[in-house]
């Protein structure tokens, strides 16, 4: 595993992604999702919404890194707020 060059932050990142997927699976088993239409232009299920928020979170981070020198906590906060908005009203 040495060649994979693990670091603590990236390991935490992937553990986090893994946890999100696991939570989604458990949530799905407990109460199956119903596709619904929110402010997003398409009908989405819970899984679609989490994917949309994660993907946009990635681009929010890239935008902040590329255009500003602000610390990472700023885009992170925005991304988390965005995630809740999409999950709740998407």
């Amino acid at each position: 595993m040495e060649w994979m060059a693990w670091t603590t932050p990236s390991a935490l990142f992937f553990v986090g992604i893994g946890c999100i997927i696991l939570t989604m699976v458990c949530w799905e088993i407990v109460s199956p999702t119903v596709a619904s239409k929110g402010f997003l232009p398409i009908i989405t299920t819970r899984g679609d919404r989490i994917f949309i928020s994660l993907l946009s979170a990635a681009f929010i981070h890239l935008g902040f890194i590329g255009l500003t020198m602000l610390p990472l906590s700023v885009p992170l906060t925005i991304a988390i707020i965005w995630l809740f908005i999409v999950m709740k009203w998407g």
């Binding site: 060649w3 994979m4 060059a5 693990w6 670091t7 932050p9 990236s10 990142f13 992937f14």
Partner: peptide, 12 residues
């Protein structure tokens, strides 16, 4: 596995 490795590379 390769995707994870690329992420690891990219921050070092």
């Amino acid at each position: 596995v390769p995707l994870m490795t690329v992420v690891n590379y990219s921050i070092q």
